[in-house]
Design a protein around this nucleic acid. Structure first.
Lengths: 125, 125
DNA sequence: ATGCTCACCTAGATTGTCGAGGTATCCATG
DNA sequence: CATGGATACCTCGACAATCTAGGTGAGCAT
């Protein structure tokens, strides 16, 4: 473990996937609901574009990280409900940690003076 | 409230630029030195690829955020030393805050504790 | 029936990273 | 002197992911 030297998967393969994973971990949902959930959870700071969301969903499904099933909403509209597969659950953990590592690394570079959170131990370099 | 509605610049236009800005704010440097500085500042967690760095530098120079001047290193090798312009300084501030806003928003979505545990009970929307 | 929200989808343009290759200089080593 | 490593720059082509901007259609209220 901890063989991981550097982190550099495109310098980010997008936090969108992590947020989708996390949202689906809480509860299986259809695309539209995922978008609203993320927007709400972020306190209205994030806007999820459908043109990014649906391709991402299809991508993840093709990879086997999530599975979708056609179903119906309470309002009787058809909707494709996605849920996490075991594989996706693993990805959630991996990508969450990758994201946090990235954030930590970037924070070190742009300096502790930013933001006001995250930096716990005084860094010594 | 603040007019700032949502944040959605590609959901990330790359922290690379911010890190370059921040590095140059500390001291004007040439490309190679910037890469090493970022790698060092991140504690060796980030690897800056030249294929990303140089295009980024040219991009930023063309935008007027930085200016480069051919010069010489102590070891007598030619090097193009870049420094921040006033415009770039402004961008540094803007992008730093955008990055931190994004990080904050994503954190809210994936949860404060990140990956590993989850609180399932007790919450009902 | 008109229009709004829900709920899905895609194509095309754009952007940015990465991998891999190339040039050239300085210096230490053999 | 030749070789090779580190410094220092550059560019091209492939690839991935987003956004814009369109489109379909069903349910519900007016």
């Amino acid at each position: 473990m901890s063989t991981t030297p550097v982190l550099k998967p495109d310098l980010l393969q997008g936090p969108l996937e992590v947020m989708i994973f996390r949202t689906l971990e809480r509860r299986p949902s259809h695309g539209y609901a995922i978008a609203r959930a993320i927007e709400a959870a972020s306190g209205g700071e994030l806007a999820i574009e459908e043109g990014s969301l649906y391709p991402a969903l299809h991508r993840l499904e093709k990879r086997g990280d999530i599975v979708g099933e056609w179903s119906q909403t309470e309002q009787k509209r058809r909707a494709k409900v996605y849920r996490l597969t075991p594989k996706g659950r693993k990805k959630l953990i991996e990508q969450t940690s990758a994201w946090q590592r990235l954030v930590g690394a970037v924070s070190k570079v742009i300096g502790p003076s930013g933001g006001g959170d995250g930096e716990l131990a005084g860094d010594h370099a």
